[in-house]
Simulated scan of single mutants.
Amino acid sequence: MYTTINENGILNNYATEPELYYAEYPNQELQNRYKFQAAIGTLLVTTLFLVALGVS
């Protein structure tokens, strides 16, 4: 942590900045996993919607 003191004796604390890095493009296996998760999520939301519509 980086700390400074001004002329009035007030402390200012600054957080340490993390190292920056660039995200990597997902490979084909990750892309397929994301597609599967999207399909499951869509199926879940659609089912909940249809159940709510049927109950009302």
Results as ranks from 00 to 15, higher is better:
34 Y>T: 04
2 Y>K: 14
6 N>S: 05
49 F>S: 10
55 V>G: 02
14 Y>F: 15
7 E>F: 05
19 E>W: 02
50 L>E: 07
20 L>F: 09
43 L>G: 10
41 G>C: 06
1 M>P: 13
40 I>G: 01
25 Y>P: 01
33 R>V: 10
25 Y>G: 01
53 L>E: 01
42 T>G: 15
37 Q>F: 14
22 Y>G: 04
9 G>A: 03
20 L>R: 13
8 N>C: 01
53 L>T: 03
15 A>S: 11
3 T>R: 13
39 A>H: 07
47 T>I: 11
54 G>F: 06
30 L>H: 08
43 L>M: 11
6 N>I: 01
28 Q>M: 09
32 N>Y: 10
44 L>V: 13
2 Y>M: 06
30 L>P: 00
22 Y>P: 01
26 P>T: 12
35 K>N: 05
8 N>T: 04
55 V>H: 08
17 E>W: 02
41 G>P: 00
21 Y>S: 15
2 Y>C: 01
29 E>R: 11
10 I>L: 04
10 I>V: 07
15 A>I: 10
17 E>T: 14
52 A>Y: 12
37 Q>P: 00
49 F>W: 07
56 S>V: 08
14 Y>N: 02
22 Y>V: 11
39 A>P: 00
46 T>Q: 03
7 E>W: 07
17 E>L: 15
38 A>I: 07
46 T>D: 01
38 A>W: 06
31 Q>M: 14
42 T>V: 07
21 Y>A: 15
18 P>I: 02
3 T>N: 04
9 G>M: 08
54 G>D: 03
28 Q>P: 01
27 N>V: 07
37 Q>K: 13
20 L>W: 09
33 R>W: 07
52 A>G: 11
34 Y>M: 14
31 Q>T: 05
2 Y>A: 04
55 V>L: 14
52 A>D: 06
43 L>R: 07
54 G>R: 04
9 G>E: 04
41 G>H: 06
22 Y>Q: 14
23 A>Y: 11
4 T>Q: 06
42 T>P: 00
9 G>Q: 04
56 S>I: 08
42 T>L: 12
4 T>I: 02
52 A>K: 08
19 E>V: 15
53 L>Q: 07
32 N>S: 10
53 L>D: 02
10 I>F: 00
26 P>A: 10
46 T>A: 15
13 N>Y: 15
18 P>Y: 01
15 A>K: 14
35 K>Q: 10
53 L>C: 04
4 T>G: 00
27 N>L: 04
4 T>P: 00
40 I>C: 08
17 E>N: 10
32 N>R: 14
50 L>S: 09
18 P>C: 02
36 F>H: 08
